[in-house]
């Protein structure tokens, strides 16, 4: 069984974002990380491979990005992926990213294609389902559990107020979320050393036009300072919530 994990290369969560001319992210000084949800997907993929009962032969990671995305792929290799693929294009929008990945992985024999449910940069949650549609594979979203049982893969899907256990035939695409793995795995020194020797293949992009374009970014207006209430005088808080904020 072969698992593919799609990774996004995103600014570290604590980044104070700035925009050059209001039209594009100012990348100066940004630390890049694996998108946190994709990191959970990768962790689960590596766990599945390590459990020898599962017959997972290979975990491959893929991203769409320039050379500056390679440290993120190396980190994924250090965490435990076996090989990495970089599609050499700037990620323009979800549609073009999904189209690029679909071209690169079609007919390559991946049984499970995983990615995080959302990316922490543009928060679209679209790539996974788009990729499934390009590949004409089944897709399952909001997956918080993956178990391989013989030839069958059982998924836990979160629904409003509950969970479902579902099975879809492989190959399929799953968007995973919290619960899929307990904690993202930290790369150990041995992993980092081994990652240098693992294959990182760069493949050329195909010609795809994005369907959307960012025209303008804005930062939120500064918020008025927090109004403090004395702990001994909590009635005041209730009055403000009722009459001023009007939320009670």
């Amino acid at each position: 069984m072969k698992i593919l994990v799609c990774l996004g290369n995103v600014p570290d969560t604590t980044t104070k974002v700035k925009f050059a001319d209001g039209a594009a992210l100012d990348k100066t000084g940004i630390q890049w990380i694996i998108n946190p949800w994709d990191e959970l997907a990768l962790t689960r993929a590596v766990e599945l491979k390590e459990d020898s009962g599962n017959a997972v032969d290979q975990v491959t990671v893929i991203t769409v990005g320039g050379k500056d995305a390679e440290p993120t792929l190396r980190k994924a290799l250090a965490i435990g992926a076996d090989e990495a693929i970089r599609i050499d294009a700037e990620p323009a929008d979800a549609y073009s990213v999904a189209a690029q990945i679909a071209e690169a992985v079609r007919d390559k024999g991946f049984d499970l294609i995983l990615s995080g449910i959302e990316s922490s940069d543009y928060n679209g949650s679209m790539v996974s389902g788009m990729l499934a549609e390009f590949l004409n594979n089944p897709s399952v979203s909001a997956v918080s559990g993956i178990l391989i049982q013989g030839s069958e893969v059982e998924l836990t899907r979160e629904i409003d107020g509950g969970k479902e256990q579902v099975v879809v035939p492989a190959p399929f695409v799953a968007a995973v979320q919290k619960g899929i793995a307990r904690e993202p795995r930290i790369a150990a020194m041995r992993g980092i050393m081994m990652a240098r020797k693992k294959p990182l293949t760069v493949i050329p992009a195909v010609d795809v036009n994005p369907l959307t374009e960012f025209v303008k970014f804005e930062l939120p207006q500064p918020k008025p300072p927090c109004k403090m209430i004395d702990a001994e005088d909590i009635d005041v808080l209730v009055q403000w919530l009722q009459n001023e904020a009007k939320v009670l």
Partner: peptide, 13 residues
């Protein structure tokens, strides 16, 4: 965008 740290206008083409 950026988990609430900014807003964006996006053209759908």
């Amino acid at each position: 965008v950026f988990s609430g740290k900014a807003f964006a206008q996006v053209e759908l083409k």
